[in-house]
Simulated scan of single mutants.
Amino acid sequence: MAKSLCIIYSQKAKYTLWGNLISTCCKLSPMRYSDYVDYGKLDPFKKMALEKLSETFGAPKRLGIRVVPESLGEPASLFDFVEYDFMLAFVVEGLGTKNLIAEKMAINEKAHGRRFYEGIGQDVLATAVNELPCVGATPFGYGDEVAVGSSSWFDDRVKAEQFLKSLATGCRIAMVAAPCGETPALCDIISPEAASLSGSAIGLVRPKSRAMWGQGLKGDEIIYGIESSGIHANGITLARKIAENLPEGYFTELPDGKTLGEALLKPTHIYAPLIEDLWEQGVEIRYISNITGHGWRKIMRAKREFTYRISFVPEPPLELSFLQKLGGVSDEEAYQVWNMGVGYCIFSTKEFGEIIASKAERRGLRCYTLGHLVAGERKVVIEPKAITYFH
């Protein structure tokens, strides 16, 4: 009995301390992602790159291959092998700053020599392979790049082995081969203690009729959201700025007993196997949105005039709710920066809802019926939060 009372008291104390911390930190000025990362400067460069490099798109024609123009601006680009019934999809993606959390935690005395790269390899892989099903492709190949500021980064064998083991785990989950990679030492470009992690992935679209860029949307679709594992790899900069202002930093304990850093470092879910399952079962998938940068704004990524009405919002992961409260981050900001518990959106019809949910459950993933499409202005309306994002 005494032991039970101690446990109850300990839990109450933990929640009281957490509440006090939130109360104190919420006195700070509200924090916004745009204070650190300005998409207003990034996105115009991407558009300019497409414009300036468009003259190269005809080069593969000599081989009987064409760049599919409709795929430009989608999560991955498509190459049509004109005389054959398949296409290849190609994408380049980077992890961003998530590994800085692992680096910061490792040098803290509370780490006691522990390294925190156990999920980082899967994270960097997921940034690329999760994009390929969005254009109808099944991933099959990956090549990573570990760019460092000093070759001494590789001296830490434990960290290196953790990273490679995690990358291999991700490859097994995604069912892809990783036969190549690159390890440039970029002295004076990257800081000596850091690494920039990125990679390229390639996937197969077969038959060609599976290729998609939103052309199949009719306006009668249901939006099925597949849960995220946590923050994944987007909005990390804002999360870091909030966490690093806390007295205990990444070692701040959450109500569930985990540290904030451990929660943020949970590896990104890989969704490609689920999509393979659905295709094999004949599920009609008309579009897929990978909820990454821009958060729930990504729901309206397809270049079509529809209104996306969201009638259900799942409970966000604990660490995201925690960060939102501590940083004074508004709902409007949070849902356009973080995934808030939804990592992938599948656009299909009502008749396939049960099988999508069933296959997701078999993969250990929750599936939510978020809402539906209607004809109208291109925007996302999150009704439970009274938020509207316009294109």
Rank of each mutant, 00 (worst) to 15 (best):
R32K: 15
R114I: 10
G249A: 03
H232C: 04
F45E: 12
P75S: 02
N290I: 15
E332R: 01
Q336I: 04
A49K: 11
R301N: 14
G203W: 12
K350M: 00
G282K: 01
A233H: 00
A194E: 15
A195G: 08
L53G: 10
A375K: 09
T138R: 04
K350L: 02
H112D: 13
G143I: 08
R66N: 15
I190Y: 07
P314L: 04
S34V: 14
K258N: 12
V37H: 01
H294M: 15
A174C: 03
M175I: 05
E221L: 01
E305D: 14
E354T: 03
G170R: 07
G219E: 04
E319Y: 01
S358P: 10
L100Y: 11
R32Y: 12
K104C: 06
E361A: 09
S348R: 10
S228M: 00
P60M: 10
G293D: 14
L186N: 03
V374Y: 02
E354H: 04
E305R: 15
Y368W: 04
A111V: 14
K110C: 07
K3H: 13
Y368N: 00
T307G: 05
T268N: 13
P184E: 05
C171A: 13
A233I: 03
F86N: 12
A386V: 09
T307F: 09
L238F: 01
K298D: 14
A386R: 13
K61W: 11
A194V: 14
V148Y: 01
S29I: 14
V135P: 04
T307E: 15
Q122W: 01
V329S: 06
F347R: 08
L278F: 09
I275F: 07
S10N: 05
I387K: 01
A201H: 12
V380G: 00
E361R: 11
A386F: 08
H391A: 05
L274C: 04
G58A: 14
T292F: 01
E248V: 03
L370P: 03
P184G: 09
